[in-house]
Amino acid sequence: MKDYAVQGLHCANCAKKMEAQLHQLQKGKTIRLNYSTSRIYLSDEVDMKAVKKILMSDNVQVLEDNLIVDEQDTIKSAAHSHNHVPDYTGSKNSVHNIKIVFILNLVFSLAEFIFGILFNSAAILSDAVHDLGDSLSVGLALVFQKISTKEANEQYSFGHRRFSLLGAMITSVILIGGSILIILNSVPLLFDPQPVNSRGMFWLSIVAIGINGYAAWLISKGTSKNEKVLNLHMLEDVLGWVGVLTVSIVLDFTNWFILDPILSLLISGYILSKALPTFLENTSIFLEAVPKGIDIRALEKNIKRIEHVHAVSHFHMWSIDGEENALAITVYVNTKDTGKQEQIKEEIRYLTKDANVTHSTIEIVVDEEYLIK
């Protein structure tokens, strides 16, 4: 029995349909396609080329290079330890974690408004505005993250994963807008600082650090752009409340009430310094820029080195959601041999597998001028 990792499975229904096609090759042989583990199981007699042809029709790639045979003659894949195969099963946990963070943020932001007024603290009120904005953005992120787990359909042929990215962009915009609002409210207090209840600030900051620290730890387990932005929220809140804690201790011994608006400005400036680059990065993904860290020119040169490849054109790479990437390319070859053309496609997919390309469209054009005779 052989056990291979596969890349490009996006839904359980797709896996079932492909497995049904593969069963036509069975004839007493074992063929199983497991969506949850992204693996295919084949008996030794199965025609691998026929299997690949069926899988490639839906842009699913078999990662044969990860094959390792152990002493019991069973097959294992290095993808287990190196995790080259994308994990599409974590989204349900993401939705659950985001839901918990949303409830924590909403309840605590309402408490902040109450205690901010009672303690007469601009820093707390400013953070209450920030946390309420966080709550709204987390709620939106929750909705979009949940939508992103839906399978592909007639309207969204790539699936719904980009909705997670949309949630990240809206979250970034709310962060930026809230920070600007805090700055505008805090600047006048620099010239007219107001007394604050430092003891109340101290105890509230202790509670806040515990709540936001737990939320940051919980959301840090995620890998999507959506979760990374939300994790940034939580970490910023923890750091902000550490600042509030420090200021409350200082104000307990001094009358330096100007520290309160100064802290608000520092928190806002820090948030802007993090949220703006994140927003720009997500915008580039939405504008279908070449994925970060991929040298498309070097990749094109490597493709041209493949035997029988004469030239390439219409070479495009873009990211679907910041995690999965897509590829479209036209390749000019000097052979009419369909077997060699399939081999060329397979080599291109191999070259791009480390770039996490899960959707690929490779068009082969026979260049008559360079045809081997």
Rank of each mutant, 00 (worst) to 15 (best):
Y4N: 07
A5S: 15
L9W: 07
H10G: 07
C14K: 11
A20V: 04
Q21M: 12
Q24F: 07
Q26N: 15
I40H: 04
D47E: 13
A50H: 02
V51S: 04
I54V: 15
S57M: 13
L63N: 12
L67K: 13
Q72V: 00
I75C: 11
S77N: 02
H80S: 12
T89Q: 14
N97H: 11
V101R: 05
S109W: 11
E112F: 11
A128Y: 08
D131S: 15
L132Y: 05
L132F: 15
G133R: 07
S137N: 10
V138I: 15
G139Q: 06
L140D: 00
Q145T: 15
Q145N: 15
E151K: 13
G159R: 12
H160V: 00
H160G: 00
L166C: 04
T171P: 00
L175K: 05
I183T: 12
N185C: 01
S186G: 10
V187F: 12
L189H: 13
L190K: 05
V196R: 00
N197M: 03
S198I: 03
G200W: 09
F202E: 11
I206A: 05
G213P: 10
E227I: 13
E227N: 10
L230S: 04
L230E: 04
E236V: 03
G243F: 03
L245A: 14
S248A: 14
I249Y: 10
I249K: 05
I258R: 05
D260M: 01
I267T: 10
G269N: 02
Y270F: 15
Y270P: 01
Y270S: 07
A275K: 06
T278F: 09
E281A: 10
E281Q: 12
E281R: 07
T283W: 08
L287M: 15
G293W: 06
D295Y: 12
I296M: 13
I296A: 12
E300G: 15
N302S: 13
R305Y: 04
I306A: 09
H308L: 03
A328I: 01
Y332C: 01
K340W: 05
Q341Y: 01
E346K: 13
I348H: 08
R349A: 11
T352N: 02
D354E: 14
N356D: 06
D367C: 09
D367S: 09
